[in-house]
Simulated assay, not measured.
Amino acid sequence: MLKPIHAAVALIPLTFSAITDVARAEEGFPFGMEMTLDAARMPGSKRVPDLDIGDNGEVVIELWCKGGKGQFSVAGTSVIFVAGAFETRNCPTDRAQADDDLLAALSDATSWKRQGDLVQFIGPKTLRFRINTN
């Protein structure tokens, strides 16, 4: 039979393991989460682009004007984004161009990193998204 002090010492590795598992989960790719582009609203618009990423990398995207679907494939810190079908909406030219530029930057990203609630997609242009925690 373990004495109380021995039992407490025996639990330390289990506690540390649980803490590091939580930390790894918080630093992993945000599958099953929604996140919003770290950017200001465009003049005349209430929208800021967001990604709703499913458990298998499928994503629903709402941009400044357009909306559609895509797919993320992730291996370690490498990432590939492929845009799917997008709705053709009546968009002002500046918003439509900003949507196209954002999709191009996301498609050009080759790696990603996460620090807490901040996720960056890194390529010729780095995109910063914040995980929605509400």
Rank of each mutant, 00 (worst) to 15 (best):
Q97P: 01
I80W: 07
M1V: 14
R47H: 11
V9G: 07
L63D: 05
G67C: 02
A10M: 00
G123C: 08
I61V: 11
Q115L: 12
A96V: 04
G123T: 06
E34A: 11
I19S: 00
A7M: 05
H6L: 03
R114D: 03
D50Q: 12
G84H: 13
V74T: 07
D117T: 12
I19V: 02
D21G: 04
D117Y: 06
M33W: 08
S111W: 00
L2A: 11
C91A: 14
V60R: 10
R130D: 08
T77M: 08
K46R: 09
V82H: 14
T93C: 13
V79W: 05
E58Y: 05
N134E: 04
T15W: 11
S111E: 07
G70N: 06
G67Q: 12
A25I: 07
R24F: 07
F29I: 06
A98W: 05
P30F: 01
D50E: 10
N132W: 04
R114P: 01
A105T: 08
R47M: 12
G84C: 12
Q71Y: 06
T110I: 04
T77P: 10
K66H: 14
R24H: 02
A40Y: 02
C65Y: 09
L63Q: 05
Q71T: 10
P43T: 13
K113N: 13
R89I: 08
C91R: 12
G84F: 08
Q120D: 08
S73H: 10
H6G: 08
S17G: 15
A18Q: 00
N134Y: 04
I19D: 00
L106V: 01
E58D: 15
G57L: 00
Q71N: 12
R89F: 09
G67W: 03
A23N: 03
M42W: 06
E34W: 00
A85Y: 00
C91W: 12
S17L: 14
T126Q: 04
G67E: 08
Q97A: 05
W112H: 08
E26Q: 03
P92N: 07
F16C: 10
G116P: 09
K46A: 14
P30N: 03
D94R: 15
I12P: 11
R114K: 04
L102T: 15
R47Y: 06
A18I: 02
D50T: 10
V9M: 13
L37M: 06
I80T: 13
A40C: 03
L103W: 02
H6M: 05
V9Q: 09
T77V: 08
D38Q: 09
D101G: 03
Q97H: 04
P13T: 15
I61Y: 01
K3H: 02
K113W: 09
F81A: 15
M1L: 14
T15I: 13
L14N: 12
G67T: 08
N90M: 15
A104D: 14
Q71V: 10
K46G: 15
